[in-house]
Amino acid sequence: MQLLPAHFHAASSNVRPLRIPSFQRTECLEEKLPFTVRMVSDEHALSKAVEIRHAAYKRHVPLFAESLKTPETTDAEDGVVVLLAESKLDGTALGTMRIQTNRFRPLSLEQSIALPDSLAGRPLAEATRLGVTGQRIGRVVKNVLFKAFYMYCQANGVHSMVIAGRAPIDRQYARLMFEDVYPEKGFIPLRHAGDMPHRIMQLKISDAKAKWQEAMHPLYDFFIRTSHPDIHVGRMKNNVLPFAPVGTFRLR
């Protein structure tokens, strides 16, 4: 998948095309989306997120996708939220992302590699299990999920966003100005990703705005100068999911 150019079109002719405003403008505008993004808080919403997650992974890594047919233990752990994008028209699930902070336990990628001193002991958030619809609007949904990730990190005092991408998806993160955590190591097999090699990358929250502005990034206005009231993220709560996924564990 490709990141959006400066202008993009909605998937349906019935939806007004979304436009990212000019980089030159200074005022902050409000933009409505044809879908919402929220934090999963019940079993039905989680099942929708798991369904779109599995479908997305099945298109690209079908063998690994077999392990994603049901909720994972991590989905219900403290310090974890699952985001769900849903169509306003019919409630269809359009995309999902899981965000794990290291407030209660190490990040999932730390099962496979230790973080450098520059990140050790810092409040971090790792985005995993990103999946979007195969429809054209999926490109829009993906960018909105990344904005939600950024907003969530801001709201919760996160130092750096961390993400791991397999080739060629890692290039998308590089275009968002994420940098290699271990440039000399290249791609590293990750246990929580079926031992598939991933490129581990990070973006410091306090640096993101300046980096995007200096680079005149085509998504700068979209991330910084445009308000999206359809994105509903906020402060971290313990046990956001008040249930245990079947066959996994019970929340303490």
Rank of each mutant, 00 (worst) to 15 (best):
Q100A: 13
L84F: 09
E30C: 10
H198Q: 15
T36R: 13
L219M: 12
K69G: 12
T128I: 08
I137R: 12
P168Y: 03
R199I: 05
F149Y: 15
L115N: 06
T70I: 00
S67T: 13
L176V: 02
P21Q: 11
P183G: 07
P197V: 05
D42E: 11
D207C: 09
L203S: 11
D78K: 11
S12D: 14
M177G: 02
P229R: 04
D42A: 00
E27D: 15
E77W: 01
F104M: 03
H159W: 09
P123R: 09
D117W: 04
L83Q: 00
C153Q: 02
V15Q: 14
I52D: 10
H7M: 07
M196R: 12
K185V: 01
A10P: 01
R38T: 15
V140S: 13
G121N: 04
F187S: 11
K142L: 13
R38M: 14
G234W: 05
R225W: 01
Y182P: 04
A65M: 06
T101G: 06
G165R: 06
R225N: 15
V132T: 15
E72S: 01
A55F: 02
T26P: 03
R53L: 09
M216L: 08
N102R: 03
Y150M: 05
G194T: 07
N143E: 08
D90P: 01
L119T: 03
I231Q: 00
N14D: 12
R105H: 13
Y150N: 00
L4I: 08
G165W: 05
A164Q: 10
T36I: 11
D221N: 14
R98T: 13
R250T: 12
E27S: 15
Q154T: 02
Y173H: 09
C28S: 13
A11M: 08
V158T: 02
E43Y: 07
Q135H: 13
S22Y: 07
L176M: 15
H159L: 00
